[in-house]
Simulated assay, not measured.
Amino acid sequence: MDTQDFMPNETVLARIRADIEAYEAERQTTRRNAAIRVPAYLISIIVIVVILALALNSFADPNEQWVSALHVFLYVGGLVALFVAYRSATSPVRRLQTSFRARLLPTIFSFVDDLKYQKGATPASAARLPKDTIGDFDRITYDDEISGAWQGFGFEIYEAVFSQRSVKAPSTVFRGVVVALETERAFPGVLVATRKANRVSSFFHGIFGNDLQEIRSGVDVLDSAYDFRTDNPTAALPLVTGRMAQALQWLGEAWPEEPARIALKDRDAFLLLPQSKNFFELPDVSLPLDYKSHVVPMIADLASLLATGALVRRIGDADARPERS
Rank of each mutant, 00 (worst) to 15 (best):
R314I: 09
A55V: 12
E156L: 06
G252N: 05
D61F: 11
Y41T: 03
F73G: 14
R17A: 14
I140H: 03
E182Q: 15
E26N: 12
L272I: 13
G189Q: 04
F111L: 09
Q4N: 11
H205C: 08
S99K: 11
V296H: 03
A180Y: 07
A225N: 05
D231T: 04
R103A: 14
Y158F: 13
A197P: 00
R87S: 12
S68I: 09
P238Y: 04
F109M: 02
D2G: 08
E156D: 12
A53H: 00
I299S: 09
N278V: 12
R267L: 13
I46R: 04
L311G: 04
L271Y: 03
M7R: 02
S88M: 07
K265Q: 14
T141Y: 10
Y226E: 03
S171C: 07
N33V: 03
G78D: 02
V50W: 08
S58N: 07
F73V: 12
R229E: 06
F203W: 13
D114G: 06
A193V: 05
I43C: 03
E258H: 09
R32L: 08
R31E: 10
R216Y: 08
A89T: 02
T30P: 00
I299E: 07
R216D: 07
Y75F: 13
T107N: 08
N210Y: 02
F83S: 06
V190K: 12
I140E: 09
K131P: 02
I36Y: 08
D61S: 15
I207D: 07
Y23M: 09
K196P: 05
E281Y: 00
P106Q: 10
A263I: 10
A180I: 11
R195G: 14
R94E: 05
Q118L: 12
S201V: 10
I140P: 00
A18Q: 13
S217F: 02
A121D: 12
L248S: 04
R95T: 05
M298I: 01
E26I: 02
P259L: 10
Q246Y: 05
S88P: 00
R314L: 13
T241Y: 02
A193W: 01
Q213P: 03
P322G: 12
F174N: 01
S68L: 09
D113G: 04
A160S: 10
P170G: 09
K168L: 15
A247W: 01
V179Q: 03
E182H: 15
A247Y: 01
L70Q: 13
R103D: 13
Y23F: 12
R17V: 12
L306Y: 04
V179A: 12
A320F: 10
L248W: 01
S166W: 08
S99P: 07
E258F: 06
I48R: 00
F111S: 08
A160Q: 01
R17F: 11
L248R: 01
G206Y: 07
R139A: 15
H205T: 15
Y142N: 11
P256D: 10
P259N: 09
D2W: 02
A260L: 05
E253R: 11
I48A: 15
H71I: 11
S217N: 03
N198L: 07
Q65K: 14
F228N: 06
E323Y: 05
I43P: 00
M1P: 03
P233L: 08
R229D: 02
I315C: 09
V72L: 14
L191Y: 01
A160R: 00
D301T: 07
K277Q: 10
G135S: 10
F100C: 09
V173F: 04
M244L: 15
V173L: 04
P283Q: 08
S325Y: 00
R195C: 05
T230S: 13
